[in-house]
Design a protein around this nucleic acid. Structure first.
Length: 271
DNA sequence: CGCGGGCCCTGTGAGC
DNA sequence: TGCTCACAGGGCCCGC
């Protein structure tokens, strides 16, 4: 479901609500796919721990926890396509597809819900800090950004989606940043001139920051920790606008497949 | 090693 | 109204 702005919105919302809370117990569902660590490892790491902080790294939510007389530890939550992280009073019925339910001492639950089971919950190896697979899109410099694409033959859109290069960019923000930079998604990444990459770097950061301000994009049922929808979908210029007029030139937005994902662009405005 | 394609899942909505 | 089918914001794994 979510890309960087949506994950940031969820992580910040959950952080405000559960920071400092103590975990009494953890209930784990029957499905194995949503777990990156064994149920017992997750339970042992979290039970009795205090939640120090909840934050975002790439598209992953990182929960820093601390048990008395033990080293700090981290749980990671990746929302996949349809994952949600909900804070609810314990008497609120547990939704279907709840795979991990973290019971807080104050009577609330922190619930990981994911119908499609593409999401993952795990525990970071002891003694290591989760840093994610790639570079952080919001803070990467223009020089480092340009270096990512050097000599790469893959389409620039596919490169933007490659989480081991940049982590956090997904299908919506790849399309939107390429449109704003005037770059066609199919162009080989290594053949894009530095000036254009600088433009892409700027438009990607601008689009992500603007989307975070608006609480992310709500396509279908995405909501943040308070159940509030984001509003960036109203600002989409190409994503999911197939056949509609380009907001710059009026020609219809086209839809193709790049890197295995639907890709929206304006043939006239993106060279 | 880099890259493309298939696949993992369920829910939703477009179209018949 | 009701059914079928394509498609969905992600990413792993395989083979070439």
């Amino acid at each position: 479901m979510p890309e960087l702005p949506e994950v940031e919105t969820v992580a910040n919302g959950v952080n405000e609500r559960v920071r400092g809370a103590r975990i009494d117990a953890v209930t784990i569902g029957p499905h194995k796919e949503p777990l990156k660590s064994t149920p017992s490892h997750i339970e042992e790491t979290l039970t009795g721990a205090k939640i120090e902080h909840v934050r975002r790294v790439g598209k992953t939510i990182v929960m820093d926890v601390k048990q008395r007389n033990k080293k700090p530890a981290q749980a990671t939550i990746h929302l996949g396509m349809t994952g949600r992280l909900l804070v609810s009073q314990r008497d609120v019925p547990v939704p279907p597809h709840t795979h991990v339910n973290i019971h807080l001492h104050d009577g609330r639950d922190l619930r990981f819900v994911d119908p499609r089971r593409f999401g993952r919950v795990g525990i970071v190896d002891e003694g290591t800090t989760y840093e994610g697979p790639g570079k952080e899109p919001l803070t990467i410099s223009a020089d480092d950004f340009a270096a990512l694409f050097k000599n790469r033959k893959i389409a620039i859109k596919a490169a933007l989606l490659n989480q081991s290069l940049l982590h956090g960019v997904g299908n919506i923000y790849a399309d939107e940043s390429l449109f704003r930079a005037g770059i066609r998604p199919t162009r080989p990444a290594g053949k894009i001139k530095r000036a254009e990459l600088d433009k892409l770097h700027a438009s990607l950061q601008a689009v992500l920051k603007h989307a975070i301000k608006l609480g992310g994009s709500s396509v279908s049922d995405y909501v943040d920790a308070d159940g509030v929808r984001g509003f960036f979908q109203l600002e989409h210029r190409v994503y999911s606008r197939t056949g509609e007029p380009c907001l710059d030139c009026g020609k219809p937005i086209e839809k193709i497949v790049v890197g295995g994902r639907s890709t929206h662009f304006c043939k006239h405005c993106q060279k």
